[in-house]
Lab assay of single mutants.
Amino acid sequence: DHDVVPEDKFQETLHLKEKEGCPQAFHALLSWLLTQDSTAILDFWRVLFKDYNLERYGRLQPILDSFPKDVDLSQPRKGRKPPAVPKALVPPPRLPTKRKASEEARAAAPAALTPRGTASPGSQLKAKPPKKPESSAEQQRLPLGNGIQTMSASVQRAVAMSSGDVPGARGAVEGILIQQVFESGGSKKCIQVGGEFYTPSKFEDSGSGKNKARSSSGPKPLVRAKGAQGAAPGGGEARLGQQGSVPAPLALPSDPQLHQKNEDECAVCRDGGELICCDGCPRAFHLACLSPPLREIPSGTWRCSSCLQATVQEVQPRAEEPRPQEPPVETPLPPGLRSAGEEVRGPPGEPLAGMDTTLVYKHLPAPPSAAPLPGLDSSALHPLLCVGPEGQQNLAPGARCGVCGDGTDVLRCTHCAAAFHWRCHFPAGTSRPGTGLRCRSCSGDVTPAPVEGVLAPSPARLAPGPAKDDTASHEPALHRDDLESLLSEHTFDGILQWAIQSMARPAAPFPS
């Protein structure tokens, strides 16, 4: 592969990997390779389809078979030569091979799209000592099968071997295949498990690692696999990028399955594409389908809103127990993405979901129960707010008499603000006073009005108090039968009158 990737590009890729991570280095090298001529790309395919690569990765054979028959990708048995050289000459001794072996032994695996480039050397060096003999053996194999790289107009793939297949390693990572398949204008990513390549439709969760975000852009890794992070704060999961590491605690105790298979379609829109997988259930989501939507993949363990709600429900009964003089119970939860139609709101002032922060849900004790107040519409209280300059209440639009249902020339009671006709409430011909108009209920007259088809109010509507207090003497005590009587009149003013009279009014101040 030294004929494909020059030394300066190799060093530039290593520097970019240390600065921005393996995914960015892979993407940059792939983009550079696509700008080369067809001879360089053909050399790339020839390096990929060597015999030892085909033996190690069985899924490469179907890719090789898909090439046109007129494309010669065979390799000479006596060494490598550029395709432009007409004579089959043995190339001179390859010093770059020693360079590659020494550099890969030092860096474990470079971040390139060629056999030198995919593992994360920093994480491997940190986690190597417990498994040094086995990992050293794996390093000797890295130059042979560490990076199976493929690129063409139909298929483009980048393979990364790992030393996680050490025997006896619980939940060992089998390997990473960062794979971009450009077929019919689409893009897919796969993962390699035990020599087999699994596409998103049959993606397997190998051991402790999972394909957290099938994305090839942005600074985030394709698999949430930063070796420096180790395990999740809650004892979460091992990262795919942690090559040759000792077994780590796999999943939280509440995880239903340690080796679950995540779905390959969004649980909201039932469509495929780039998904984020939940650590607590097999569901996966688009970032845009979450509520609120996320802009980037959160670091650490992530769970959907259903799993978060289940966790909150487990903690909430203990938080609601009476604990005198104790601060509110704080339950730190990872930043969760909410699927459509589901929402768990945190306290005000918290950062938005999706940031690399930890939301704190506070379970406050329930407030003391209070008697429910009568629910009145805002339009129902409008007549009470229509007060004239002299303190006389004006008529609201649409006000109707509670007896006849007519809204023409209605009066407004100064005591309960109900609309009424003087002739309907006082049919006996009582003279109307000039000021202080009161309806039949507030004036103490319980004589029913002779209106055909309208039920008369119940005599129990009024329960006047002592006459010594004029204001308190007109406080009506309405009961269920009074409400039914008012409802039978089918008037809004009657219902409003009952609601206003049912509310307690402050006692009249004593004259000074």
Rank of each mutant, 00 (worst) to 15 (best):
D279Y: 09
A366N: 07
D264L: 06
R432Q: 04
D469Q: 09
I297K: 05
G388L: 03
T491P: 05
K362C: 04
E263N: 13
R345S: 09
L294A: 11
R423N: 02
V268N: 06
L258K: 06
P322M: 09
A353H: 14
V387M: 14
G349N: 09
A284V: 04
D406N: 11
P433S: 11
P328E: 09
S458C: 13
G465W: 15
Q393T: 12
P328V: 13
A288L: 09
R461Q: 06
N394W: 14
P509M: 14
P328M: 14
G434T: 02
E265W: 12
A417H: 14
C278Q: 07
G346D: 13
P466V: 13
S305I: 12
E326D: 09
P282M: 13
P464V: 13
E342H: 15
C289E: 15
D445Y: 08
W422Q: 11
P506Q: 03
Q257P: 03
L352I: 05
K261Y: 05
A467L: 08
P372L: 07
E265C: 01
R440S: 07
S485N: 03
L359A: 02
T311H: 14
P374Y: 15
D264I: 04
P292T: 07
H363S: 05
C413M: 00
E342R: 10
R270T: 14
C307N: 15
S369K: 08
S443I: 13
R318Y: 06
H474S: 09
Q242H: 10
Q243H: 13
D377G: 09
A396F: 14
C442D: 01
P459E: 09
G429C: 10
T435R: 06
P509C: 11
E274D: 09
P466T: 14
P249F: 05
L496Y: 05
C266P: 05
P292M: 12
I276Q: 08
C266F: 06
V387E: 06
L483G: 05
A340L: 07
A418I: 06
R432A: 04
L252Y: 09
T447V: 15
A370E: 12
Q257L: 06
C439T: 01
R323K: 09
P256F: 09
A463Q: 10
R432F: 12
C304P: 15
A319Q: 06
A507C: 14
P351I: 10
S245I: 10
K261T: 07
A418S: 04
P448N: 01
S441N: 03
G280T: 06
P322K: 13
C304Y: 11
L395C: 07
G354V: 15
P459V: 11
L364W: 10
C269D: 05
S339A: 12
L337R: 05
G434F: 13
A508C: 14
S291P: 05
S254R: 10
P433W: 14
R480W: 06
R400K: 10
T311F: 13
L352G: 10
G272L: 14
L478H: 09
L496H: 00
P509K: 03
N262V: 11
Q497A: 07
A288K: 11
P457L: 12
G429N: 14
A472K: 07
P351G: 15
A370T: 12
D255V: 12
W422E: 12
R323D: 11
G436W: 11
P282I: 10
H421A: 01
H382I: 05
G354C: 07
S291F: 11
F492L: 04
K261G: 06
P298M: 14
L294G: 05
V410D: 02
K468D: 04
E326F: 12
S441E: 12
N262D: 09
A340T: 15
D271V: 10
D409T: 03
C386S: 05
Q316P: 08
C404K: 03
A380L: 14
P450V: 10
T357F: 13
D493C: 00
S305M: 14
A428R: 08
V410C: 12
F492H: 01
G336Y: 05
G375R: 08
S254Y: 12
P450T: 15
R295L: 11
D445Q: 08
T408E: 06
H259T: 12
Q501N: 15
R283E: 13
A463D: 03
G429A: 09
C416G: 03
S443P: 10
E484R: 10
G244Y: 05
R480T: 12
Q313G: 12
H415L: 11
E390M: 05
G280E: 06
A319D: 11
R338L: 15
C404L: 03
G349S: 09
G346R: 06
G402I: 04
S245A: 08
P433I: 13
P334K: 10
S305D: 11
P511G: 14
C266L: 06
H474M: 15
R295T: 07
T358V: 12
V360G: 13
C424L: 01
C281M: 12
G494I: 10
T408P: 12
D279T: 09
N394Y: 15
G405K: 11
E274N: 14
A419T: 09
Q316Y: 11
R438W: 12
T430R: 10
